[in-house]
Design a binder for these strands. Structure first.
Length: 499
RNA sequence: UCCUCGAUAGCUCAGCUGGUUAGAGCAUCUGACUGUUAAUCAGAGGGUCGUUGGUUCGAGUCCAACUCGGGGAGCCA
């Protein structure tokens, strides 16, 4: 019976067989260290010439990166490695010897890696990300199922653009145009009126030509919708859901977060401390405040100082380079590349900050926040911020107006700290048929397409709320990633349809 | 659509104000090393510098257009 690497601790001292692939080989005279991966984990297998027969050693000499094999040997502790056990190999069985595997153990550019995404997924970092993603998905289902929500699916083909704003993918549906869904929201409301509390979990499509680290053309969204929930109940649910998910990842994905070098103290804060809740008006005040200007000024000065320090280090290393020995030379080259990359980032930051300061200072009440404004607001805090009661003009037609002040719509956006931006958007829905009809007209949407939706207000209309959670943005935040394209197995975005 | 940065070896990059035969590390191949952690050490092969045109005695380097890509704005999760 074959063993998975993750189960090796249960077999200490025993002889087992593991099937997998060679992730890396290091060797010295008469001894080979294989790093084997089988999907469940990565571990070292040691082949010593003295301890195997001639044929096994001969076979071992042919092994290359990503060759597939089964190794049989004794499980012993290994305290030097991340994974605490290794296999002392007695025998190997080769499935395939690989030639010229394209991904090496050095750094690669994003474009190259994305072109080899089908192979890139095999690396430890991607392995860790996919496991975090999996745990988040599992936690989402657990959370909602435990609370009596029913998972239901909204259609992917739709006859119209539901909110009438973003650009959608058009397809041919038996001769008439159809669009790929940009949100299951309206269907979610219908399902909530049938089942009480529901959530959808499915793909969403946006045809916007966004070329940023936060956007995908195809991404996964979770959209809960609850009958008899007001905005405050909605926010409570969002907060407890995010705490639940992050707690689940913190307790079950230690290895993965460690491998990703995620600072877990920041995630722990999200679990332990209350989220910040502020109205749009308060957020605008904060944005325009001197406090914001001071904060950004300080960020700018830090960036400038760091730049000076790096330039000094760069100069020193360049002087040392000609006289350095080979090993040291390589070290210097590595560091110089690192410095160059950081300098480019800092340069961009220093270009951006003055614009952010200007945009924050000149922000006008009534406008929607831009990406930079969101970033600036989140820089003040270390936990997620729920901004609620936005100007109704900037929100979708189905959003309920604040009964106390009709300027505002009862919407809420959750902004993640550390610059990850909006991860949740939601709100309380309009319940009045006449108000909705008026809103649909104001937005120039085709009334006929919304007849079924208006039925929900004609037959037993009740207060209800819901929200949309962007899975990839949440994964990026929890895993501490620079870009959402690493959070999904095969990313689809502008200029990327393959592999 | 706009702004901005970029394209040099299989991969990641260096190449300053234009000046002999274009550099490094990794990967590949050969050799050394019995506990390695992106192992190390010695050696070898590998490039019409994104495309087209221009300036010049001379262009990887300067100029223009184009192609492709990164990041950002808009829009959003």
């Amino acid at each position: 019976m074959n063993t998975r690497i993750i189960d090796l601790p249960k077999h200490e001292g025993n002889t087992v067989t593991v099937q997998g692939w060679i992730y890396n080989i290091r060797e010295s005279k008469g001894i080979k260290f294989l790093v084997i991966r089988d999907g469940s984990e990565f571990c070292q297998a040691v082949i010593s010439q003295q301890e195997v027969n001639e044929q096994t050693w001969k076979d071992a000499e042919q092994l290359t990166q990503e060759s597939s094999l089964a190794v049989t040997g004794k499980v012993v502790p290994n305290h030097r490695d991340r994974f605490p056990f290794e296999i002392q190999v007695q025998n190997i069985q080769i499935y395939q010897i690989v030639k010229d595997y394209p991904i090496t153990h050095k750094e690669h550019g994003v474009d190259f890696l994305m072109n080899h995404r089908h192979l890139w997924l095999r690396t430890p970092r991607q392995w860790a990300i996919m496991r975090v993603r999996n745990r988040i998905i599992y936690a989402i289902h657990q959370f909602f199922q435990e609370q009596g929500f029913v998972q239901m699916d909204a259609p992917i083909f739709t006859a119209n653009a539901c909110e009438g704003t973003s650009t959608l993918f058009e397809t041919d549906y038996y001769g008439t145009p159809a669009y790929l869904s940009q949100s299951g929201q309206l269907y979610g409301e219908a399902m909530a009126m049938a089942m009480g509390k529901i959530y959808t979990f499915g793909p969403t499509f946006r045809a916007e030509k966004s070329q940023t680290r936060r956007h995908l053309s195809e991404f996964w969204m979770i959209e809960p919708e609850m009958a008899f929930y007001d905005l405050d109940m909605n926010m409570d649910l969002i907060e407890s859901m995010l705490k639940y998910i992050v707690h689940a990842v913190l307790t079950n994905c230690r290895t993965e977060l460690n491998l990703l070098q995620r600072d877990t103290s920041k995630l722990q804060k999200l679990v332990d401390e209350s989220f910040i809740r502020m109205t749009y008006q308060e957020a605008v005040e904060l944005l325009k405040s001197d406090k914001t200007q001071t904060l950004l000024q300080k960020d700018l000065e830090n960036a400038q100082q760091q730049t000076q320090e790096l330039l000094a280090e760069q100069k020193q290393l360049q002087q040392e380079h000609p006289s350095a020995k080979k090993g040291r030379k390589a070290e210097i080259d590595r560091r110089l590349q690192e410095i160059n990359a950081t300098l480019k980032d800092l340069e961009e930051l220093m270009r951006n900050i003055p614009q952010w300061m200007k945009s924050a200072k000149e922000f006008e009440l009534g406008n929607d926040f831009g990406g930079s404004d969101e970033t600036v607001i989140t820089r003040h805090f270390e936990v997620p911020i729920m901004v609620h009661r936005y100007p109704h003009e900037v929100k979708a037609f189905y959003m309920k107006r604040d009964p106390k002040d009709s300027r505002w719509a009862m919407g809420v956006d959750v902004l993640a700290p550390e610059g990850y931006g909006e991860i949740v958007g939601g709100g309380e829905r309009e319940t009045d048929e006449q108000v909705l009809i008026q809103k649909i007209q104001e937005h120039n949407l085709p009334m006929s397409a919304f007849e079924w939706y208006l039925d929900l207000r004609r037959f037993g209309s009740v207060p209800h709320s819901g929200f949309g959670l962007g899975l990839e943005r949440l994964v990026a935040y929890v895993a501490g990633l620079h870009h959402v394209r690493e959070t999904i197995p095969f990313a689809r975005h502008y200029n990327r349809l393959t592999p």
